[in-house]
């Protein structure tokens, strides 16, 4: 990209003399994600900034930015209230276009699977390993919980699911196998991130599309691991009342793709 990479942070994050300049972690179509600190120097956060879009009319730009920041923050707070594991919202300013979220220390599922497949599986995929299956099951539980409270993520990928790094190193209680899995980055709480496209919905269709998108993501980022997704669905199916209907709907979605036919 020829575009200049001097991103300007929103105030007050641009004015700091003693806090180091926040590094850019990643960038999406709409937002920039920085790592910095908030409230105390020892509290890391993910700062999501939606910069002004000069190609939009200023009034429209302000309204869209506000609506999107608030939609994301509201869904995150709802999840947190209901006990779905997501980053906490620590602060927001919709006029400046930023959202401050808890920093999740750990790996994305994508990275965890990459590491696992490279190191332990090799060419002949043995996907019955306890660690991976356990991880897939935990993903199923978390997704069921998310859908169960009436939230649809809208952009489920292996990069928007994380495995939180375990704290309390060496408390001597974990078994050897758990220690091994920890090394592989498979053990730990599954955390859902990036609710930028999330909506509140209890429609089977929306839930099924959520699962379908993730299934496709699994297939494209980890073709050898496609079979693993069955375990996600198996556990999902057992985890809340409406799940079975959603799985049946998923079969329809697979046949026609993500978009409903608009013909006729």
């Amino acid at each position: 990209m020829a575009q200049s990479t001097t991103h300007t942070l929103p105030p007050p994050f641009n004015s700091s003399s003693t806090t180091p300049k926040p590094p850019l972690i990643t960038q999406g179509a709409e937002a920039l994600l920085y790592k910095t600190t908030y409230l105390t120097p020892s509290t890391p956060i993910a700062l999501k900034h939606r910069p002004k879009k000069s190609y939009r009319h200023p009034t429209l730009d302000t309204r869209l930015t506000k609506a999107r920041i608030l939609a994301e923050a509201r869904v995150l707070v709802k999840c947190k209230r209901e006990g779905v594991v997501v980053p906490a919202v620590l602060g927001a300013d919709w006029e400046e276009g930023w959202l401050a979220c808890e920093w999740i220390e750990g790996k994305t599922i994508r990275a965890a699977l990459d590491g696992y497949l490279k190191r332990d599986v090799g060419e002949e995929a043995d996907l019955r390993g306890e660690g991976v299956r356990g991880l897939m099951g935990r993903i199923g539980v978390v997704l069921a919980k998310l859908h169960g409270i009436g939230v649809v993520h809208g952009d489920l990928t292996t990069s928007n699911l994380m495995v939180r790094q375990l704290e309390r190193e060496g408390d001597g209680l974990e078994s050897l196998s758990l220690g091994e899995n920890r090394e592989k980055g498979l053990e730990g709480e599954v955390v859902i991130i990036d609710f930028g496209l999330a909506t509140q919905s209890v429609q089977d269709e929306d839930r099924a599309v959520d699962l379908y998108v993730l299934e496709r993501a699994f297939g494209s980022t980890h073709p050898q691991a496609e079979g693993l997704f069955e375990e996600v669905l198996r556990v999902y199916g057992e985890s809340y009342k409406g799940a079975k209907v959603v799985l049946r709907r998923l079969e329809d979605v697979r046949l026609r793709g993500r978009k409903k036919s608009m013909i006729g």
Binding site: L70, A73, L76, V77, K80, A88, V89, A92, A100
Partner: peptide
């Protein structure tokens, strides 16, 4: 604390 901070952040929206 996490829920409370979220509620405070959303206030006035």
């Amino acid at each position: 604390e996490a829920v409370i901070l979220g509620i405070m952040a959303l206030k006035g929206s």
